[in-house]
Computed example of a mutant assay.
Amino acid sequence: MSNIRTTAAPTPLPLTEPTAEPARPMADFDWQIAMLWTALGGSIEKKFLCNLHLATLLELSSQAGITNRRSGTVPLSPLEATAIIKGYQLNHFGLDGSLFDLRDPQAFEAELRAHGIGVYDSSRRIRLLQRLYGALASQGLSIEILRDRRDRGLSYVTDRRSPYDIYHVSERVRLRVTGRKGAHVALIQVPQGTRGPIDTLWPSAAHPDTELTQTRAGTSELIVPGYGQDAIEFRPPSDFYRLLAVEGDAELIALFSCGELARAAKQGFAGAEEEDTALGEAPPRMTEVDAGTILAWLDAHPDAPLRVAQLEYLLR
């Protein structure tokens, strides 16, 4: 008899799939910035929709800082949130750093949609403002408000602690634009946010002169209105405003009169002297049709010169 023993084969263990690690949810800032870039994709250059540009906005030494924030390892600070808002010029549309406090994607998207950001804009006036803000010049073009000291004996003192100038209803001023000799300039006023009206302060039928001319000091400027004419008067409502000086070709700048220059020419007033028309009339208010006309001109002339200067002030 053989002394070899036999034993029962071991029962095989049941086959099971490897246990998958649960998917880690995206950090808030990761989906927030991805959603923001999706909205902005059609309105700004792609080179600005990347971690490298974000690192530049936050003054970080490398993209690693952005990676840490997108992964949730490092929280986004309120100061950094504000830097992103200003870096993408979302503050021009009434947004601030509190946008990144929204933790619900639907609420975040709704906020972008409500303010007409990028692909969510439905207004030609908003699209025009986006085009103009995208042409802001860092140098070579400026706008300033000149106080008229003859308007009254006593005046309020400007709060120098404010980051912008403060003016008061009924105060009279002039505007000075300095830029490229021979260029033409339009001046528009926009209240805080994007849903308010856009008023054209210059040009109008009463004030058609838009060309920057050289002064004795060698600069090229336009004073609005010219000396010897009544000054501009601040009128209600009190609000936070932005003045935009738009520099370009005469044909483009004439469109900012919202049709007034064209109508005046048809009526035979093109050669009328400015002094013959009272300045106190309301400035032209831009409509969707006016904004669409300007946008169409810009689309048809992609290489035409366009620069914009901005000035912010508070009216009390």
Rank of each mutant, 00 (worst) to 15 (best):
2 S>Y: 03
3 N>V: 04
5 R>H: 08
6 T>Y: 00
8 A>N: 00
11 T>K: 10
14 P>R: 04
17 E>F: 10
19 T>Y: 12
24 R>C: 07
24 R>V: 15
25 P>G: 05
27 A>L: 02
28 D>P: 08
30 D>W: 05
30 D>A: 15
33 I>V: 15
35 M>C: 13
42 G>H: 04
42 G>L: 01
44 I>M: 15
47 K>T: 12
48 F>V: 07
49 L>I: 04
49 L>M: 08
50 C>Q: 12
50 C>T: 14
50 C>P: 03
51 N>K: 12
52 L>D: 14
53 H>C: 06
53 H>Q: 11
56 T>D: 10
59 E>R: 12
60 L>T: 02
60 L>I: 04
63 Q>L: 06
69 R>Q: 07
70 R>N: 02
82 T>D: 15
84 I>Q: 03
85 I>G: 00
85 I>Y: 00
88 Y>L: 07
88 Y>S: 06
94 G>M: 02
95 L>W: 01
96 D>V: 06
102 L>P: 04
105 P>N: 09
106 Q>P: 00
107 A>D: 15
108 F>D: 02
109 E>W: 03
114 A>M: 08
118 G>C: 09
123 S>G: 09
126 I>H: 10
129 L>Q: 05
133 Y>M: 02
133 Y>G: 00
139 Q>H: 11
140 G>M: 10
147 R>P: 12
153 G>F: 13
154 L>R: 11
154 L>A: 13
156 Y>P: 13
158 T>Q: 12
159 D>H: 10
160 R>H: 11
160 R>M: 12
161 R>F: 12
162 S>C: 11
164 Y>C: 09
164 Y>R: 11
173 V>T: 10
173 V>D: 01
177 V>F: 00
178 T>D: 08
183 A>D: 10
185 V>R: 00
188 I>L: 07
192 Q>Y: 15
194 T>M: 03
195 R>I: 07
196 G>V: 09
197 P>G: 07
198 I>E: 00
207 H>W: 11
208 P>V: 06
210 T>E: 07
213 T>W: 04
218 G>V: 06
219 T>S: 15
220 S>T: 09
220 S>D: 11
221 E>Y: 00
221 E>K: 01
223 I>V: 14
226 G>Y: 07
229 Q>E: 12
230 D>G: 13
230 D>R: 13
230 D>A: 15
232 I>L: 15
236 P>E: 03
253 I>G: 01
254 A>N: 14
255 L>N: 00
255 L>H: 00
271 G>A: 11
271 G>E: 13
272 A>W: 13
276 D>M: 12
277 T>I: 14
277 T>R: 12
279 L>A: 14
281 E>Y: 10
282 A>L: 13
282 A>I: 08
286 M>N: 01
286 M>C: 08
288 E>W: 04
290 D>T: 10
291 A>P: 04
306 L>Q: 01
311 L>Y: 07
314 L>P: 03
